[in-house]
Design a protein around this nucleic acid. Structure first.
Lengths: 208, 208, 208, 208
DNA sequence: GATGAATGAGCATTCATTCAT
DNA sequence: CATGAATGAATGCTCATTCAT
């Protein structure tokens, strides 16, 4: 029994080594240029071994999202317990997005990945459903959290607003960096200012 | 004289046929699965002929963004001339985003494309600079337009907020559709609600 | 009639323009990288027009040898008339090789071309025979010229010795230049020294 | 242990099988028509497998020259130890050229290859330098060997003379065969006669 | 478990050549 | 005469995946 336990532990460790490698390749090379060859090189395994731990390349990439989902879950649960007021709560939620972006940037990369056509065709429905289920749970956690913030819209709309704005901002900023104008750091500042816009409101603020 | 004119017209028509084909493939298959072979099939030309009209595959894909940039430019100039008040202006701006999304969805796809690492390596600096210049002009057009809307933030931040929120929402919605929950139409409704959030403000609305 | 004459003259002029272009491409790019596209660009004609004046690409390249063959013929006939003694004759023959190398370097390139397998398959037997005939005539001219130089070997062997040594030396020298050691000019000096070696053998033998 | 040894042996055998295939294609089809497809067919491997053993096509072709260089090295070292007199030495050197031509005809083909413009552009400087170094060593071996043969010229000139004459003769002969006059065997006889010409010059000069 | 070896299917791109105008 | 347009057939090379050991 001890043996099979150890085996399972080792197996898990190997899987995580593969995922760590995949994460670093994905960040550096992007989805188009992420190859199994390079993932294998980085975790010092043979390409063939990758397919012992994962069904195919897309399953490796998609498994990265489960890690991120867990990270989100923990963070959102902690926020729920904090019992913050509207203003500080929005600050904290936004700051948590920033934290995810810094510590799990792949989460944003993969989110975009999911929006690509045909990208989920090679994945079994079970995995697909699990992703839908678990990311849906997180979305509902965020929506519930934001329900109390504003009367202007239901929590799920606020959740969509915040997540989408943040995601969009990271993409815009990266594009600017790639095109040669704007720097990575500028994004943080812009995002802080956008948060202020979201918080204070646009027109309401203007009229009175 | 008539001959060379007609030739030029036909040439332009063919180029546009290639671009139309590229656009449809890009939408259906995504960047990863967009092949020159399929583009050629859809415009009923041989692969070789593609390279008679465009230098390489990336030039085809990039030419799509120039079309979109022009479309943006015209729309934004029209909006600038309309001389709308804050509320109607925001409505009109958002509605124009919707219009672009419906008529030029590739613009959003390619925007994401630009955020991919190493994606611009095969492109000459001149083209890169031109994209930066012309999309930057559009950004400034939007920023100037929004300058008068609110005192809470400069126009460029509002421009970033709106564009990024919209972009993020389209990605989120597409992801949901791909994952099997949510429908494409739902996105339009959600976006309308997010616009209300942005317009009325979040907290400001709540406290008084 | 004047018209058809002028036409013929113009046709010949165009052919020569193509050949001049082909020559310069062949020298710069080598056989492997000589393309009809580049030949067309250099003579400012369309690729299609090339095929109006020549049957196919190889015919263009091979036609270059006829120019060279004529050049050889004239030079050798002049040498034959000069009535030189052994020593000066060998000097003059060698110097004529140098002249061909400077003014018609393609002759050497194409000579190598002929030694490539399958290189003559696309050519009609008539053309092949004409090349064989006319270059054979030149060879015999050179052999006859050298017949009197030495008793050690028949003229045709001397002709082979000299031509082959010279050809081999040009190849060796070019290889060295390409590999990054040795300079183009060094070849001339080496060839002069090799001539001395050849002379000392051929002539020394004759006098005693 | 036995396993990895056997693997290494098999790997080497496969590489050599690829090289043997490449050699035969190169000889039959010439550089212009040597394709990876045909090399793969001849060694009964898939094209993809070729690239498992070699980085690219040029690396396959270049590896052929290293084999030849080693062959030259051994032959020249053996000749150096033989301690022959001028006449027999020249005979032996020439005969060794013949041996290389019969057993490693690709060496001559590739030598010509090196003289082509732009042919070495796809090769790393390290490999280029190694070729220059190792073929230069062989040249010096030959030059040293010939230093004692004649007072008429330094060894390196004699080396150039002999190598270039031989190379030129093989090219001339092949051209004649390709053009349809002259036979392959005739070349051997001609070369023997040219050797006599060279000998009569080089050695005669020494004795008096 | 792990991997060296192998590959089918595919990829963007090139090129000599043809043909309607 | 000249050419813009078009293409079939290759070409070198990549990549995710499989399998015997």
């Amino acid at each position: 029994m001890g043996v099979s336990e150890r085996r399972e532990r080792e197996r898990q460790a190997r899987r995580e080594a593969v995922l760590a490698a995949a994460r670093s390749v994905l960040l550096e090379r992007g989805m188009r240029n992420t190859t199994t060859k390079e993932i294998a090189e980085r975790c010092e395994l043979s390409e063939a071994t990758l397919f012992f731990y994962f069904k195919n390349k897309d399953e490796i990439l998609l498994s990265l999202i489960f890690e991120s989902i867990d990270f989100w879950k923990e963070g959102l649960e902690k926020l729920a317990k904090a019992g913050l007021d509207a203003g500080p709560l929005l600050d904290a939620v936004w700051q948590f997005h920033e934290k995810v972006y810094v510590e799990h940037p792949t989460y944003f990369v993969i989110s975009v990945y999911f929006a690509q056509p045909q990208m989920l065709e090679s994945i079994s429905d079970e995995v697909k459903d699990e992703i839908a289920l678990r990311s849906g749970e997180n979305f509902r956690r965020l929506a519930n959290l934001l329900e109390q913030v504003s009367t202007v819209a239901p929590g799920r709309i606020l959740a969509d607003t915040i997540w989408s704005a943040f995601l969009g901002l990271t993409i815009s900023n990266t594009s600017r960096v790639n095109l040669g104008y704007g720097k990575a750091e500028a994004g943080t500042k812009t995002r802080a200012q956008v948060l202020e816009v979201l918080k204070s409101g646009l027109i309401a603020e203007k009229s009175p």
